[in-house]
Simulated scan of single mutants.
Amino acid sequence: MDSQNQTNWIKKLTGAVAAVGVSALISLPVLAQFNYSASIFNPSGGTSRSVDGTIAGELDSAIKYYRDFQAFAEAVNKAGLTDNFRAKDQADPNKVLFTVFAPTDEAFAALPTDIREKLFKPENKDKLAKVLNYHVVAGQVTAKEIEAGVVQTAAGMPMKIQLNQAGDQLTLNDASVVQSSRRTANGVIVLVDKVLLPPDLF
């Protein structure tokens, strides 16, 4: 994907989130009422195998080294979206530009066979990209978004995000459970246990 299209994709994603309002980033005082660890959206530590440290670098590395989200990484590559995740804020190279909810390999394996086969057919590249963009949010997920119960995705559609009553588990669309996360130079990868499918995909 050329730089112009990449820039347009980032602007579109950022604009979609701006449409639902600007929120303060998750902070410890706010999370006190949630009883949920801030580390899920602001994990500590750096990357270990990625050359450039970006989300794209982590996706590249996943195909070579990781087992937990290799299928997602391969899907991003097949859809031609990998280069989008190499973008950095020139003024602040370590700024979180994306939160990527990456389904685990087990999550992809659990998809109905017919759906999985359709998604990876060359003629359905746009639909695969739509599914992947449904797992991407601009910037960091905010406390206000968790309170409101919705985040806006790069697919142009909202995704439901909900904290359980015990305050120790986040779910997406009442189905996918947030498991763990890792920080990259330009974003956060959050592992989830189910692939989220946009309405009316096929």
Rank of each mutant, 00 (worst) to 15 (best):
L111R: 05
A129V: 00
R116W: 06
D83T: 15
E74N: 08
A79W: 07
D89W: 01
K64M: 10
K95H: 02
F101E: 06
A79L: 12
N94L: 02
L119I: 13
N77E: 15
N94D: 02
A71W: 02
E123L: 05
A91H: 03
P122N: 06
P93M: 04
A107C: 11
L128A: 09
T82E: 14
A87C: 09
A102N: 07
K95M: 03
P122T: 01
P122F: 04
K64A: 13
L81H: 08
I115C: 01
A87E: 00
P93N: 01
N124G: 06
R116T: 15
G80T: 13
E117H: 03
D60G: 05
A109W: 01
F101M: 12
E106I: 05
F120L: 13
E123S: 12
L128T: 06
E106W: 04
F120P: 05
K127V: 05
T99Y: 04
P103A: 08
P112Y: 04
K78H: 03
A107G: 08
F69I: 12
A79T: 10
V96F: 01
A110F: 09
R116M: 11
F85C: 11
A107S: 08
A87P: 11
F120G: 03
K95I: 05
N84Q: 13
G80E: 11
F72L: 15
D60N: 12
D89K: 03
D89V: 10
K127G: 07
T82I: 12
G80D: 11
Q90W: 02
V100Q: 02
V96R: 03
T104S: 14
R116V: 15
D126Q: 10
D92G: 00
T113W: 01
K125L: 10
S61H: 03
F101K: 03
K64D: 14
P112T: 10
